[in-house]
């Protein structure tokens, strides 16, 4: 089929774009990790308080 003969489009990131993406990924991971800890701590406190 004609479509499969087409070369798939790919982009090449520049070193600066790669570096920026890596930094953003690490920042997002840290923020998400922080949120998990925060919501976990709140949940433990909340349910701990209900039992008393």
């Amino acid at each position: 089929m004609a479509d499969t003969d087409k070369e798939p489009e790919r982009i090449q990131l520049t070193p600066q774009q790669q570096k920026a993406r890596r930094k953003r990924s690490i920042a997002i991971a840290l923020v998400l990790g922080g949120l998990v800890v925060l919501f976990y701590a709140y949940t433990i406190r909340y349910f701990g308080g209900i039992g008393q």
């Binding site: 489009e9 790919r10 982009i11 090449q12 990131l13 520049t14 600066q16 774009q17 920026a20 993406r21 930094k23 953003r24 690490i26 920042a27």
Partner: peptide, 11 residues
């Protein structure tokens, strides 16, 4: 190909 629209924004 190099795509100049990909973000270079840092945290």
């Amino acid at each position: 190909t190099v795509d100049s629209t990909v973000s270079e924004a840092t945290p």
